[in-house]
Design a binder for these strands. Structure first.
Lengths: 283, 283
DNA sequence: TGCGCTTGAAATGCCAGACATTTAGAACTC
DNA sequence: GAGTTCTAAATGTCTGGCATTTCAAGCGCA
């Protein structure tokens, strides 16, 4: 494991990269203890703070965890799905909010991915998954529910659908789509949305899953997608009409959000706070 | 923006979390310059090295970039899909290699996601995408091709299929699946695989996409999935037979890889090296 | 012998101060 | 006005040290 002191890149970045490669390639195995900071500093011929910066970079990606004390040190962390979820969601959220992604594109991707789960979920969903979905549908129908709570329930409903497929890899991959896109889409549409219509479509989905009918499940998801797209279109029309100078045909299209344009339409504060950084200690 | 000096969490982790929240919530907008390290140290009432550790954590997640010199500093980074790709792939690779994910589960997820792209790709694939796929098929048929090169070509083929959907969000979400799972799956199967059979199935896929036939595309993908699953089964059978004491019915099943068991079957060194850490400078 | 306490060592967490390097812009010269 | 030099600001790095946490060995005592 070597670094190049002449490289223009930061030493701490180089060191972090070298250690990361060792972890990814399996040279360092799970729960193995890395050399102490002093030993690493000696090995790479740098100072201890530089090594520490490198280790913090790795800790931020949950590749290592650190423990204080006599038998402490840095250990290769067994990256779990639970740990990876919040990072995935944070990254997906920022990708959508910082880039010129149209609502249509995000919505299309989200439902395409969810439809991929439909046949598996129809085949394997347990009674628990169905019960969760029914409960969320019921909650969504209660009067006085805030928009934020409706949005959260919506996410929980779709999470249950995805988890119903019984495939943790799928659930992980979908987490970014469902948990990041859904709240952003809702922020745009929920002020105008017709809750009764959404609830009816959710009921269609749950019914189809209960019957274990994959085609009906996919069709219901498609209907929900079209409903969402149509709703978004009307929202954008209203907004465009409100502006005195509606954007011409050469305009960049409707951005999904906020930060990219510097003109937030809704605060992003309802996004779940994620703290992907601090790795739980212990083995 | 405040931190709690009494918290058991590292100060640098707390500071990184506070700044991350500000970025995700939009309080700090893209390309905005953060206060200098000295000012941050003063604000949070910590030393400069501690602030630096926090900034390195954020840099490791591509949330900020740093610039040296008179007008330098730390800037909120516009997270691009290109930057997020390698992180996504590294994370997916480690999730698969460090956890007890069965080959069957990973394969199922991978093809479910890819089938989600099929209808979109059938509708929108350009001549370029088709040409890429045909070229990769041709390369796969050349004699003397190493297993690693065949694997790389396989990945390129499926990337073209996914990109054909013309949806950057989908392409990003699929990157983890295709680029991380495919090489791992190939490492298990490529020694035994029947290249001619794979090439025939790839040709079926390309043909279906050329005809813009979504159902045929999905069916061809399903056929490829079944071929892969069957191939994996036979590989596992052979391996089990080679062991003097084959695992009993209560065994944990066939793990996808390597690190989890500490007994690598194949070196993971062919995984593409990713350097998700060092953010390119400049705006 | 066995239990509990003390103490030491090892490791990370944190700090102070300093120097090196890079870079943009101001100031200056021609 | 163009080119050059100088300067200041900021990050990158190092030295050295202290604080804190944690385990384990050693010791005393019953």
């Amino acid at each position: 494991m070597k670094i190049d002191p002449q490289s223009p890149a930061d030493l701490s970045a180089q060191i972090a990269g070298a250690i990361r490669d060792a972890i990814v390639s399996g040279t360092l195995i799970v729960d193995e203890r890395l050399p102490s900071e002093a030993e690493l500093a000696d090995h790479f011929d740098v100072s201890r703070p530089t090594v520490r910066e490198a280790l913090k970079r790795l800790a931020a990606q949950s590749l290592i965890r650190t423990q204080r004390g006599a038998t402490g040190g840095a250990f290769v962390n067994r990256l779990s799905f639970e740990e990876a979820y919040p990072q995935q969601i944070t990254t997906s959220t920022l990708l959508l909010s910082m880039n010129a992604v149209s609502f249509e594109t995000a919505c299309e991707a989200r439902y395409a991915l969810e439809r991929a789960c439909a046949p598996l979920s129809a085949a394997r969903r347990t009674a628990d998954h169905l019960a969760t979905m029914r409960a969320e549908i019921h909650r969504q129908g209660q009067p006085g529910l805030t928009d934020e709570a409706f949005c959260a329930s919506d996410v929980a409903f779709h999470r249950a659908l995805v988890d119903g497929a019984g495939n943790p890899v799928l659930s992980y991959q979908l987490a970014g789509a469902v948990e990041a896109m859904q709240p952003l889409m809702n922020m745009i549409t929920f002020s105008a949305r017709d809750r009764a219509r959404i609830i009816a479509l959710h009921t269609d989905i749950a019914d189809a899953l209960e019957r274990q009918d994959p085609q009906a499940t996919a069709d219901a998801l498609t209907a929900l997608e079209q409903e969402t797209q149509a709703l978004a279109l009307s929202v954008f029309d209203v907004r465009a009409a409100k502006r005195r100078h509606p954007p011409g045909p050469g305009s960049p299209g409707q951005r999904l959000l906020t930060h990219a344009t510097g003109v937030p339409d809704h605060p992003a504060a309802i996004l779940s706070k994620t703290r992907a950084d601090h790795v739980s200690k212990g083995r």
